[in-house]
């Protein structure tokens, strides 16, 4: 499980990317992140929902009530155009970070 200090600045980017693929509800995001990162990032629900609230407040995402499988409603989140633009910026920052780290540290050692 990755150190939270390291991942902290990237959580918003990750969530925006997932929501750009499709609208999801909170708990679904927790599971998708767990699977996609091969259990390397096990985001706590408390963290996820707090980030969702911040993103919504910044109007990068919005929420709506959608259908549940068993009936009833559940809150889904979707990206806004502002969110897409923000994600693009974050993506180029990540590219910059990746290049810097690659240049400084070289390729990752899979053998460890």
């Amino acid at each position: 499980m990755i150190n939270s200090d390291v991942i902290r600045g990237h959580i918003e980017t990750i969530i925006l990317k997932l929501l750009m693929e499709k609208d999801m509800y909170g708990y679904e995001l927790v599971n998708v992140i767990k699977e996609r990162t091969n259990n390397l990032f096990l985001i706590k629900e408390a963290t996820l929902y707090a980030v969702l609230q911040r993103l919504e407040k910044k109007e990068l995402i919005s929420s709506y009530l959608g259908e549940k499988t068993f009936g009833g409603k559940r809150r889904y989140y979707q990206v806004s155009p502002l969110g897409r633009a923000y994600f693009k910026e974050m993506l180029s920052e990540w590219d910059m970070l990746r290049k810097i780290m690659f240049n400084m540290l070289g390729e990752s050692n899979e053998q460890d």
């Binding site: 902290r8 706590k44 408390a46 707090a50």
Partner: peptide, 14 residues
């Protein structure tokens, strides 16, 4: 129990 604690919430507020 699975939810987390206040420090996890604070992760969202660097």
């Amino acid at each position: 129990n699975e939810f987390g604690d206040v420090h996890d919430v604070l992760e969202a507020y660097p």
